[in-house]
Design a protein around this nucleic acid. Structure first.
Length: 667
DNA sequence: CGGTTTCGCTTTTTT
DNA sequence: AGCGAAACCG
């Protein structure tokens, strides 16, 4: 395929820092992969000196796949394609000593962190919404604010209290030799700030840096990037402010502007030709996004055919919306004989997927759901990983608490309270406290024996665990605690028990795979790596092949599909109610823009006039964004009818649908 | 201490 | 509707 002149310019410019403003579908991933090729083949960069950063694991995988497809040989071996967080983890793994950690640090995911915070609140007898606190701390970390600064700055008593909790949280993490997701960015930044030698080492290691989806970087990521590229500033970042959809996570699209300020010799290249969508889809997208303010002007155009009008379909109820979409999909497929993976159903939030899943399953249509519940959020996976974490890091109290009664060991909340107070006075971890003599003054009888036995058992197992190069000892552990039995007795149906057991086996197999791949087989490294990966985002080609794709708008970024259904385009859903309240309409508009620009040939937007939330049915209004679309490029079916459901003139199909809803509501 | 039941709250998006 | 936490009972 031919490269246009802007694309070529972006690929060949290497002696200056470069910002590529790449509109949707303008071939930005292609530019990155071609540029890596160019760096390797024409500029003789060593692959291990090149780092390409993406935002999500999925994107990293996608890029890795594109690159290895291009090179069948081993010439790209050593090339790094990862997420910011993984890069941060690698830096911490190498520099743990300078950070006051052991090499066996644990990585807490969001759920673990929530538990820890809840415990802290409980200990200090403070009632405060945990989620809010966690969000606040995460924001602070991403803005590189230390608790010390915040304590000084705090104006209100409330802020003061939050800052204190932040401090306590950080101290707890330190005591556990644990880091959370935000630390993976924060710690390297702090390290580079204070240690020029370490920074120099990493600057020499990374000679060329490429960043995808740059508009989604937050302050911590920017501050990691900036010292790494140093004065030489050999980097290419690719971004599009119209696709900035992660502000809620601290991303600031004006990092694009900051770049032009911080690197005066920055070159800016715009990619404005779209190779993905039909004229009409593109015009609809452009008209929508024109309502937003922009950092950079951009005029996206396409040479492809005009295509069909974008369809907007009103439905009387959410159930009818589902039926309609599935029916449209099936009939289209029958008519044009396209594979299922050419179809995608996109929605604002995960819970919307459920009804579509059901309908697709009923129709025996293969589908693949990405995102949603993380593989690592499954209790059985977290249990096994907690055992692993405790084996390599005896100070990981979070892991200890998770598994001390999984399966049951007859240790109740009282005993755990005592154990915890004892451990605190002894300044040691819960696991270590188990085998100390002094514990007997706090706990007695069967609980004491149970704890001692558990401590001894774990310590015995952990002795040799790091030398192991297979998962065999873990298999043994799982059978020793009869974990499968535990799963069975805790599952409602045999099918769900089987599913959980399969999950555990998948996890073990995955570990084994990683163990054989790792240059130095080390269970510790494998487990740390696992905590950042996510099995569901590790979508293999077989998973996608001939499956209808179900995903959130966020997850869909960077992807494209011939036929797209954008569902639930209603007020309170898209734009989301919270965003309306916080007045973040522009980001919601960008989200819809991202959704629209995923479509290559045909786009169908749907909404419903009635939708269930929790237990009650609510009337809904079509999204305000629909009125912003160019009327001559859309075909709006059932427009206006939902405003006055009583009086509406029903079409045959609508009438039937209404009857069906009536029948259903009586049941 | 452990199992069962009830209650209450939830649904934004992800590393 | 579905899940986790608290409350309650054996």
């Amino acid at each position: 395929m031919h490269l246009n002149s802007q694309q070529q310019a972006a690929i060949h410019l290497i002696d200056k820092p470069l910002l590529v403003l790449a509109g949707a579908g303008s071939g930005k991933t292609r530019v990155i992969t071609e540029k890596i090729h160019y760096l390797l083949k024409h500029c003789h960069y060593l692959p291990e000196k090149i780092v390409a950063l993406t935002f999500t694991n999925k994107a990293a995988q996608e890029m890795q796949a594109r690159i290895s497809k291009k090179y069948k040989d081993k010439s790209t071996e050593g090339l790094t394609v990862t997420t910011f967080h993984s890069l941060g983890m690698n830096i911490i793994r190498k520099e743990y000593a300078a950070l006051g950690l052991t090499s066996r640090f644990s990585i807490l995911d969001q759920i673990d962190a929530t538990h820890l915070l809840r415990q802290l609140l409980l200990d200090q007898q403070i009632t405060f919404p945990v989620d809010e606190l966690q969000q606040q701390i995460s924001n602070w970390k991403n803005q590189l604010k230390t608790p010390e600064d915040l304590l000084v700055q705090a104006k209100t008593a409330g802020e003061q209290r939050c800052a204190k909790l932040y401090l306590a949280y950080r101290q707890a993490l330190q005591a556990y030799h644990a880091v959370d997701f935000d630390d993976l960015l924060l710690m390297p930044v702090e390290l580079f700030d204070k240690s020029p030698e370490v920074l120099l080492k990493w600057q020499q290691k990374i000679r060329y840096l490429l960043v995808d989806e740059y508009q989604d970087t937050n302050l911590a990521q920017y501050r990691l990037l900036k010292p790494l590229v140093g004065k030489e500033a050999h980097f290419t970042v690719v971004g599009d402010d119209d696709q900035a959809i992660y502000a809620w996570r601290g991303a600031q699209a004006d990092n694009l502007i900051k770049l032009t300020e911080d690197f005066p010799n920055l070159e800016v290249i715009k990619l404005e030709q779209n190779y993905r969508s039909t004229q009409r889809i593109l015009k609809v997208a452009n008209k929508l996004i024109a309502q937003n303010t922009h950092l950079f002007d951009k005029n996206l155009w396409s040479q492809l055919q005009e295509g069909e009008k974008v369809r907007v379909i009103a439905n009387s109820t959410a159930e009818n919306e589902v039926t309609r979409v599935v029916q449209e999909l099936v009939s289209h497929r029958v008519r044009f004989n396209k594979p299922y993976h050419h179809y995608a159903i996109l929605y604002r939030s995960n819970h919307q997927a459920r009804v579509f899943e059901q309908a697709l399953r009923e129709q025996q249509i293969p589908y693949h759901l990405s995102g949603g519940q993380s593989f690592f959020a499954y209790a059985e996976i977290k249990d096994i990983l907690a055992y692993c974490r405790l084996l390599i890091n005896p100070d990981d109290d979070m892991a200890f608490l998770r598994i001390i009664n999984t399966p049951r060991r007859g240790i109740g909340t009282q005993s755990l309270q005592h154990l915890s107070t004892y451990a605190k006075t002894r300044h040691t971890s819960l696991l270590n406290a188990c085998s100390e003599m002094g514990l007997s003054t706090y706990i007695s009888g069967s609980s004491l024996r149970s704890l001692a036995q558990f401590g001894e058992w774990i310590q015995h197992l952990s002795k040799n665990i790091l030398q192991e190069t297979t998962i065999e000892p873990l298999q043994k552990l799982i059978s020793e605690i009869d974990y499968n039995g535990w799963i069975q007795s805790n599952s409602k149906t045999p099918a769900s028990a089987e599913y959980k057991q399969k999950n555990v086996q998948d996890l073990l197999n995955w570990m084994q795979r990683l163990l054989t791949k790792e240059t130095t087989p080390d269970l510790g490294a494998v487990i740390q790596r696992l905590c950042l990966l996510d099995m569901l985002s590790q979508t293999s080609q077989e998973d996608i092949a001939n499956h209808v794709q179900l995903m959130t708008l966020h997850a869909a970024k960077g992807l494209e599909f011939p036929y797209v259904f954008l569902v639930g385009v209603e007020e309170d859903l898209l734009p989301h109610r919270n965003s309306i309240q916080t007045n973040n309409i522009e980001e919601e508009r960008r989200l819809l823009y991202v959704g629209i620009t995923r479509a290559q040939e045909q786009l169908t937007i749907t909404y419903a006039a009635k939708r269930q939330r929790f237990r009650t049915t609510y009337s809904t209004k079509p999204s305000r964004f629909l009125d912003e679309l160019p009327t001559d490029h859309i075909y709006w079916e059932g427009r206006g009818e939902q405003r006055n459901p009583e009086e509406k003139k029903q079409t045959g199909r609508e009438h039937l649908a209404g009857l069906k809803a009536l029948l259903n509501s009586d049941v």
